[in-house]
Design a protein around this nucleic acid. Structure first.
Lengths: 129, 129
DNA sequence: TTTGATGCAAATGTTTTGCATGCAA
DNA sequence: TTGCATGCAAAACATTTGCATCAAA
């Protein structure tokens, strides 16, 4: 695979994702990067998001509400989707990898991992109701 | 909310989903129903799938590969996505609802539930490799 | 120079919607 | 009859892609 050339746009996208906890969609990334690079195109944003995700520098979240969102935090962690405001939060929690074994008990295939989304009401929405 | 009127198309969709374990996409449902009702339109298929899902008669699966699929089995159960053939299988397993508590321990919001997808290699693909 | 990256616009794939007509109640 | 459901086609979205140009290396 060819090595990436430097590009200001890609750096800006990485930088933005590294400093936000918003779990933005591709379009939201686009809007934010445009504040700094007004000429950046949506195509470039998509190309770079996919490239960075393939290379493991960011994570592409296939959210339960159907949207794709991006996360600059590549450490394994879980996510929470608020049914009220629709925002995605990180959850710090102990490992639940043992559920792979539980699932494997009644299944003849090979279970390599799992993806889990929690949902409910987020702290912000609980306060403001 | 108005009560549904009977429609052969909607019945055919329910019937089809009740007897398959394929977890088909909307387009696959469309293709299959067309065998019986050649004039059915994709719009009708989408309208009915969404209607049935809203009413809890079928389940809309937001699959980890990005596709939306439908399941006629509304009993709570888990799903497995094969990384090799891309098919979705049902998994019979004991409850793992305790992970909601584990997640709640480090989170200030209210956790109402979770959605989990397991992935790996399915039994069919393990045999044929 | 060479070649990957970009901006732009067109193309693609999926899902939704408007509307006249059909059909269940 | 009434009004929900349908078929059809157009519209709406989200994402990808072709291509000429730009800019790292």
């Amino acid at each position: 695979m060819a090595v990436n050339k430097y590009s200001r746009q890609r750096e800006a996208i990485k930088e933005y994702l590294a400093h936000t906890k918003e779990h933005p969609t591709a379009d939201t990334v686009y809007m934010n990067i445009r504040a700094t690079y007004p000429n950046i195109s949506l195509g470039t944003v998509y190309r770079n998001l996919n490239l960075l995700a393939e290379q493991g520098e960011i994570i592409k979240l296939n959210c339960q509400d159907g949207s794709d969102r991006f996360d600059g935090n590549v450490k394994p962690h879980y996510h929470f989707l608020c049914n009220n405001c629709g925002r995605v939060h990180d959850i710090e929690m102990e490992s639940i990898d043992h559920i792979n074994k539980i699932a494997g008990a009644g299944f003849d295939g090979k279970i390599e991992g799992h993806v889990t989304f929690f949902y409910g009401v987020c702290p912000d929405c609980m306060r403001n109701e």
